[in-house]
């Protein structure tokens, strides 16, 4: 564990709490992509299968994994049941097949061994890197977002961005690198580039998140 990894994980945790806060306080899931949230559940469940297969990494690791699976399912419940009426499916029209299909193919092609759990792990890495697409698509379509929603997306982007120095650090200190996670992580962080630009230049200076026309 190094400081980049720790703060990356904390940013990831923060993103979930910000999302819950947004839904609970505004009593609405307006502006959020249900599809992105479903993809995160798929990501967590397929990646954290090792929880149920007896692989033990650490107490920290297990607690975090359980939290991410539990909280992401709870968010689906909030969006689908409790605040269903505030969700606008006509905005959330990104075709997730275009994300799941290629991720599955990449998972089958690039993995550390051709076993069920390793393929699913690899699939989850590729899928996570693009899971934010439906959410960014909504931002693009509406051209603006509530500030708290932008904080949520920023926390998610910061989480993956911090994993990059973590990998560099681990490469130097442990001599090990995880090429699948690194490539997908770089892609994922890159996807946030446009968003970050508007977020840092506008939202953090108290302005609304509005995309330039």
């Amino acid at each position: 564990m190094n400081i980049f990894r720790l703060f990356g994980d904390l940013a990831h945790l923060a993103s979930i709490f910000i999302l819950l806060q947004k839904i609970q306080v505004s009593r609405s899931c307006r502006g959020l992509s249900f599809k992105t949230q479903v993809l995160y559940v798929v990501v967590f469940v397929s990646r954290y299968l090792d929880l149920f297969l007896g692989t033990w990494v650490s107490f920290y690791n297990t607690v975090m994994k359980l939290f991410f699976i539990g909280s992401s399912c709870y968010i689906l419940y909030l969006m689908r049941v409790q605040f269903r009426s505030t969700y606008d499916p006509t905005l959330d029209t990104f075709r997730v097949e275009y994300l799941v299909g290629p991720s599955l193919v990449l998972g089958l092609l690039f993995n550390y061994s051709f076993t069920f759990t390793e393929i699913l792990w690899s699939f989850s890495i590729f899928l996570e890197s693009v899971a934010i697409f439906p959410q960014l698509f909504i931002l693009q379509r509406t051209g603006e977002a509530e500030t708290i929603t932008t904080h949520y997306i920023a926390a998610l982007g910061i989480y993956r961005a911090l994993y990059i120095p973590n990998w560099i650090y681990r490469y130097w200190t442990e001599g090990s690198a995880d090429p699948i996670a690194i490539v997908a992580g770089l892609v994922q962080t890159g996807l946030y580039a446009d968003f970050f630009y508007v977020y840092f230049t506008k939202v953090l200076q108290g302005k609304r998140f509005e995309l330039p026309a």
Partner: peptide, 10 residues
């Protein structure tokens, strides 16, 4: 593969 089962990141 020694990588297998060593995914300690989240």
């Amino acid at each position: 593969d020694e990588k297998e089962g060593k995914h300690d990141e989240l």
